[in-house]
């Protein structure tokens, strides 16, 4: 009766709208600061462990501890070697991070927390060198620079595989589910009330959870 309805949810593909304006080189340079594992994005510069320690003590230690060992609930940046296959792995720059570029990139852009983007390239090289040192990955006379950056191999570099759920899990989890008499008996094996860490009127002190050694995974 009426014309065929036009109900495509997607806008038609259009070549170009001519919107926006060209980005200036200075503008791209100001924002395009990410650093990749192959060193792409690294600026010229260098820094040694000793300078790094100085800068670190000034800008970082208040939260992450003098030796990057962590403080209270603030993240530890060193330690944890050999814990990844245990309960409650300690994941730090040294024990977990596959690429040094990530340290440089994150520290340069996002730290110090609350006063980000204040570190120069040289300062970032130096602090990164100090973090390698605090993880016993370099000697105290080490100098990190753009040139030797990609030579650093991180301990857990081989510790990652691409998402394999499609192969490993989906075949198993795509079976016809049982609807009736699926098991003989059911027992309660664990209660949240034992831990008693939920906020609220009836909450125990938060420390209760960690004091009794029970895992309280951080959220990230």
């Amino acid at each position: 009766q009426t014309q065929v309805p036009q109900t495509d949810a997607e806008p038609a593909a259009v070549q170009s709208f001519g919107l926006g304006r060209p980005a200036l080189p200075e503008e791209v340079a100001a924002w395009d600061k990410d650093v990749s594992p192959d060193g792409t994005g690294l600026p010229e510069g260098f820094g040694d462990v000793a300078t790094g320690e100085e800068r670190y003590l000034e800008h970082c230690a208040a939260c992450h501890g003098d030796f990057a060992e962590g403080l209270d609930n603030w993240p530890a940046l060193s330690g944890g070697e050999g814990t990844l296959d245990r309960a409650d792995p300690e994941k730090t720059v040294g024990s977990y991070w596959p690429y040094l570029s990530t340290v440089w990139d994150y520290v340069h852009h996002s730290m110090p927390f609350g006063n980000a983007q204040i570190l120069t390239a040289d300062e970032t090289y130096a602090i990164t060198a100090y973090l390698l040192y605090s993880n016993a990955l370099v000697e105290d006379d080490f100098v990190l620079s753009k040139d030797n950056f990609t030579e650093i191999e991180m301990p857990n570099a081989a510790g990652f595989v691409e998402d394999d759920r499609a192969d490993v899990e989906y075949p198993i989890f795509t079976a016809e589910p049982c609807m009736e008499n699926c098991k003989e008996s059911v027992e309660i094996t664990m209660n949240a009330s034992v831990l008693d860490v939920t906020p609220g009127d009836d909450s125990a002190a938060p420390d209760a959870a960690t004091e009794d050694g029970t895992a309280v995974a951080p959220v990230n």
């Binding site: 990410d34 650093v35 990749s36 991070w97 690429y99 990530t102 990652f160």
Partner: peptide, 13 residues
Amino acid sequence: GPVESREETSKYT
């Protein structure tokens, strides 16, 4: 390629 930033290496793995 991927940047392998902190949020896709240290976290969210």
